[in-house]
Design a protein around this nucleic acid. Structure first.
Length: 108
DNA sequence: AATCTGATTGTTCTT
DNA sequence: AAGAACAATCAGATT
């Protein structure tokens, strides 16, 4: 079993508060985006189910409901999602590699 | 080496 | 078209 101790994630960013970040950032060419996260896959599956259980539910509710359910799942249930996340993570490795390769070639 | 930070991912709904 | 609650992430940058 992997015993990753190294960095015991401490507090959060410097934003003090809970952690509200806004978008608006872009990336350079070839943007090697990272893989998705377990929540993304989970949402993909539950999103319709949640809405089915909550007819007429709005985005905010679905999101919250989703969050609750997500944590309500057992580690086993999250497994498939985490598995996909891990799979996508690998995908990112490819992007990263491709990006580096192109970047090297594109010595502009 | 160890710690931190920021950027990113996708859903749905609203405007 | 883009943003925002919801959660994860985690790879790179920084010290």
């Amino acid at each position: 079993m992997p015993k990753e101790k190294s960095a015991p994630r401490k507090a959060k960013a410097t934003k003090a508060d809970g952690g509200k970040k806004k978008k608006g950032k872009h990336h350079y060419p070839n943007a090697p985006k990272r893989g998705l996260s377990a929540y993304m896959f989970f949402a993909n599956d539950q999103r319709e189910k949640v809405r089915e259980d909550n007819p007429g539910i709005k985005f905010g509710e679905v999101g919250k409901l989703l969050g609750e359910k997500w944590k309500a799942l057992s580690e086993k249930q999250r497994a498939p999602y985490e598995a996909k996340a891990a799979n996508d993570k690998k995908r990112y490795e490819d992007e990263k590699a491709a990006y580096a390769a192109v970047s090297a070639l594109e010595t502009d």
